Amino acid sequence: MVLAIVIGTMGGAVASALGVPLPWMLGPFLACAASSITGLRLTGLPKGREIGQVVVGLAIGMRMTTAALATTLTLLPAMFAGTLFVVVMTMLAALLLMPLARVDARTAFFATAAAGMADMATVAQQRGGDPDVVSLMHAIRVASVVAVVPVMVIAFGEPGVLVESASQASHSLAALGLALGLALATALLIRPLPFPNPWLVGPIFLGAAMSGSGLLTVAIPELLIILAQWLIGISLGCRFKRTLMFRLPRVVLAALIVSAYMIGASAVAAWIMAALSGLPYVTSFLALAPAAVTEMVITAKVMNLDAEVVAAFHVMRIAVIASTILLTFSLFERIERRLRSALC
């Protein structure tokens, strides 16, 4: 754990000095991932990623004024359409992964489903798939999105014009401590419930309720956001294990190809959604990016974009996919069998 902290901090400092986008997330992530792959045994801080998500969720929730909530509700049709796109895109990704990685349909489907890595690995094992392949594919997909999409967006995208309403927000440390405590309590409270990503979603709901009602609006210090990114980056980097990467080299290569396809397909679909919904292209791209909801929300916040809209799209996608995954799997199996029969 101490080694992970040292390497993550050095990675963040180097990335910051080099001007890398989101240096305190990408720097620790890339440094810890590279170190893990070389064979170092790294462990992230206990609940580090979850604590980082609580901070980010509260910061986004505090931006959700009544007007922002009303705007988000008008985008419900676009959210459903975006979720349908992700489902179709991941099904095609599964069909692509099967020959590339030489895995069965069950493993390929759960390895590419845009849902939680741990959940998909467990369901895949229950259905006769390979949980190691599923875990590795999800780790590489998330890593690819985190490493590529923020860089693309910040390097080539147009920053938004949204600014924090700092003048109306409290800068009291006591108010900040109270808000963070309530956010953590909310996450713990809804954790047993079937909510997608409770560590992020719970604080978003709490922050929106407090800010939208005028009860309490707290300014989240930039240093705290950087600390959250640092925790998340280290946690993501420590997921990579040398033994698994070298045991399944064909899966690693296939996962990189499939991840590139997902990112490219999302980039193209974002143009269509931006034209139909009126959303900025960059916001649409972050909203459709396959996975990494917390990291996409952080990117949107850094770019002064509609981070709450990006969060809403991802929450909708996670909720729908998680609740219908077995039905979608049955549909995929029928499609795959028909395609196999047609080719034979």
Rank of each mutant, 00 (worst) to 15 (best):
residue 94 A to R: 08
residue 52 G to N: 14
residue 53 Q to F: 13
residue 73 L to A: 13
residue 80 F to K: 00
residue 80 F to V: 15
residue 57 G to R: 13
residue 55 V to P: 08
residue 14 V to F: 05
residue 86 V to S: 14
residue 20 V to G: 00
residue 62 M to F: 14
residue 54 V to S: 07
residue 35 S to I: 01
residue 90 T to L: 10
residue 26 L to T: 01
residue 87 V to C: 14
residue 64 M to G: 08
residue 94 A to G: 13
residue 38 T to Y: 11
residue 34 A to R: 03
residue 47 K to V: 05
residue 74 T to H: 09
residue 66 T to P: 13
residue 54 V to A: 11
residue 51 I to H: 11
residue 19 G to W: 15
residue 25 M to S: 04
residue 77 P to H: 05
residue 68 A to M: 15
residue 22 L to M: 12
residue 15 A to P: 13
residue 53 Q to L: 15
residue 31 A to E: 04
residue 44 G to A: 15
residue 47 K to I: 09
residue 18 L to F: 04
residue 56 V to A: 03
residue 23 P to V: 01
residue 31 A to M: 04
residue 29 F to Q: 03
residue 59 A to L: 11
residue 91 M to T: 03
residue 54 V to G: 06
residue 71 T to P: 06
residue 89 M to T: 07
residue 19 G to V: 09
residue 34 A to W: 02
residue 33 A to S: 11
residue 50 E to H: 04
residue 93 A to R: 01
residue 78 A to E: 03
residue 17 A to S: 00
residue 80 F to C: 07
residue 22 L to I: 01
residue 73 L to W: 05
residue 34 A to I: 05
residue 43 T to E: 15
residue 92 L to W: 10
residue 89 M to G: 06
residue 85 F to I: 14
residue 79 M to P: 04
residue 52 G to D: 01
residue 56 V to Y: 09
residue 71 T to A: 13
residue 18 L to K: 14
residue 69 L to K: 10
residue 27 G to E: 02
residue 27 G to P: 09
residue 82 G to C: 04
residue 49 R to W: 06
residue 21 P to C: 08
residue 17 A to Q: 09
residue 55 V to S: 12
residue 36 S to N: 03
residue 63 R to E: 12
residue 86 V to E: 12
residue 68 A to P: 04
residue 39 G to N: 11
residue 16 S to C: 11
residue 24 W to P: 11
residue 34 A to D: 02
residue 37 I to L: 12
residue 50 E to W: 03
residue 37 I to S: 01
residue 46 P to K: 14
residue 36 S to G: 13
residue 71 T to L: 11
residue 75 L to G: 02
